[in-house]
Simulated assay, not measured.
Amino acid sequence: MENTIAIASLQIGYQQKTVVKNINLTVRPGEILGMLGPSGSGKTTLIRAIMGMIKPMSGTVRVFGQAMPNRHLLEKIGYMGQTDALYDALTARENLQFFASLRKMTRQQTAVEIKRVVRVVRLQSFLDRRVADFSGGMKRRLSLAITLLGTSELLILDEPTVGIAPELRIQIWQELKQLAAAGKTILMTTHVMEDAEQATQLLMIRNGEAIAASTPLDLKQQYVVDNVEEVFVNHHRLKSMACGQTPQY
């Protein structure tokens, strides 16, 4: 089975400053990759490279077996950025209809998809309210609904659960797991450790470098801890202990 994303020896920089260093990454159909890292660690830069928005200094980025950038592949990718790209003067329904039209969905397909995605994010009662009247959390929910429209083979979600209530996150994860079970590939950045635990694979990034990559269970077993937050926060100390070295403080 062909990899959805294949990154080899990737380096990205701005004005001769290296931001992402020597990233190697493979994501297969049906996997949910969670990327963890503090602000400025390089997560969003890596996403931009996968989307073909940034040209690498060196290394390769391939999506669906083809080198990026490749604008023709964007039709297969659903993207949700950190900033909500919504039309405040339109209602939620009108926003969904507009973005469905960009994906060349028929009127019938659009109606079916809108019904599905608003159920996932629980916006059924707000479909005909102007987005200008939405709270920040409601805008995030609408942005996610727009990203879920249609049949994108790869979903890239940058901090999708910010401002979303815990009980709604459970429902969103049920949908994401169903999509993954159907063969979709999902890549998401998050600061929410509960979300990280739900991913099938994790990539932890600090200062533009991958510091750990495996399944959540493997990482917890490797470092003998109870949660992935302990792996991330105490990575250097735990790695030294795992190697039988005396931690340096």
Rank of each mutant, 00 (worst) to 15 (best):
A212C: 13
R103Y: 05
L123P: 04
A89T: 14
Q124T: 15
Q108T: 14
A165H: 11
I50K: 07
E75T: 03
L102V: 07
Q15F: 12
E94K: 11
G81N: 10
T18M: 14
K220F: 09
K184M: 00
T60V: 09
L123V: 08
F134A: 11
L219P: 03
V118D: 05
E194K: 13
K43P: 05
D88Y: 02
I170P: 00
H236R: 12
E2C: 05
T110Y: 00
I5P: 12
I114V: 12
T18K: 13
S152Y: 02
L157H: 10
L187D: 06
K104T: 11
F232V: 09
L36W: 08
K104M: 06
F126L: 14
V231L: 11
L102A: 05
G40N: 03
L179D: 00
A6E: 15
L74Q: 09
S214K: 12
H191R: 07
G183D: 12
V117K: 02
P216F: 00
L96I: 01
G13E: 03
R130G: 13
V63D: 00
R141L: 12
A85S: 13
G163F: 03
V231K: 08
V19Y: 07
V121M: 03
L144Q: 04
E209T: 12
R169C: 09
T151W: 00
L25Q: 05
D218T: 15
L168V: 12
N207H: 14
R122Q: 15
E175R: 12
L179P: 00
L25N: 01
H236M: 06
Q198V: 07
V231M: 09
A92I: 06
M68R: 13
T189N: 12
G30K: 03
T45S: 08
P29Y: 07
I50C: 06
L148E: 11
A242F: 10
G59D: 05
T151S: 14
P166G: 10
L74A: 11
G163C: 07
R103W: 05
A196C: 06
L238D: 02
L154T: 07
I170R: 14
G65H: 08
T26R: 11
V228H: 01
L157I: 10
L203Y: 06
D158Q: 05
I146F: 00
M193C: 05
Q198I: 07
P160G: 08
I156P: 13
G137E: 06
V121N: 04
Q222V: 02
R107P: 00
R140M: 08
T189W: 02
R62F: 07
K104F: 02
H235R: 05
M193K: 09
N70S: 09
V162T: 15
L36A: 06
R122D: 15
D195A: 12
Q221T: 14
W173R: 00
S214E: 14
M241W: 08
K177V: 00
P69G: 01
R129M: 12
A145E: 10
